[in-house]
Amino acid sequence: MAGSTITVRTDPEVAAQIAVLAQAMDRSRNWVIEEALKQYIQTQSWQIEGIKQAQASLDRGEGIPFDAVMEEMDALIEQTARTRDA
């Protein structure tokens, strides 16, 4: 499979760490970078999808009001403090 070429400028320390990983894994530096990019893209895509779903949920009125969350948090903090002091 033919790939696209991307040029990246990076800190020499990052480049050195990539080289160390590549050698330890018996892989090329390109492979290490490609895998890192794939993982980054997958994580970012997952987070963006989660944010979109949360925003849609809020748009449908399924959110919990801030004041209700804070009241519950205060109650949990009080309960924990009482348990710890007992």
Rank of each mutant, 00 (worst) to 15 (best):
M73N: 06
A86F: 07
L58N: 15
V14W: 00
K38P: 01
A75C: 00
G63C: 10
A75G: 02
T5C: 07
W46S: 04
I48V: 10
T43G: 07
L37N: 04
M70Y: 10
Q39P: 03
I18V: 15
T7L: 03
E35L: 09
P12V: 04
Q55A: 14
D67K: 13
I48F: 02
A36E: 06
F66V: 10
I51M: 12
I6T: 07
V8W: 02
I64K: 08
A56T: 11
L76F: 00
Q23M: 05
M70G: 07
M73W: 05
T7E: 12
L37P: 01
N30P: 04
K38V: 06
V14Y: 00
G63V: 13
A81F: 05
I77P: 02
Q79S: 11
Q47F: 10
D67L: 15
L37V: 06
M70P: 04
M70S: 11
A16L: 13
L21M: 09
S57W: 08
E71Y: 01
M25K: 13
Q53W: 11
A75H: 00
R84P: 02
P65W: 01
A2V: 13
M25L: 12
N30W: 02
E72C: 01
V32P: 05
I48N: 01
M1F: 10
S28M: 01
I77T: 10
M1L: 13
P12Q: 03
E35Q: 15
L37I: 06
Q39S: 07
T83N: 15
E72Y: 02
A36C: 08
A75Y: 00
G3K: 11
T83Y: 13
E62H: 15
R82H: 10
S28Y: 03
A81M: 06
E34N: 09
A36L: 12
Q42W: 05
A81D: 04
I6D: 01
A75V: 00
E13S: 11
M70C: 12
A24H: 03
A15P: 05
L58S: 15
S4T: 09
Q39C: 06
S57P: 03
W31G: 02
G50T: 14
R9N: 11
P65N: 08
Q44D: 04
P12T: 07
G63M: 11
A19P: 01
I41F: 09
W46Y: 09
R27N: 10
A16P: 09
E71V: 00
Y40A: 11
K52Y: 04
I33Y: 00
V32F: 03
D26N: 15
I33A: 00
K52M: 03
E34D: 11
A56Y: 07
G50C: 12
T83S: 13
Q39F: 04
E72P: 00
G63K: 10
A22I: 09
R82P: 02
G63Y: 14
W31D: 09
A86K: 09
I51S: 08
T43I: 09
E62S: 15
E72S: 01
E49I: 10
R27Y: 12
D85T: 08
E71Q: 08
D26S: 15
Y40S: 06
S4K: 08
W46C: 03
R60V: 01
T43K: 13
A54M: 15
M1A: 14
E71A: 06
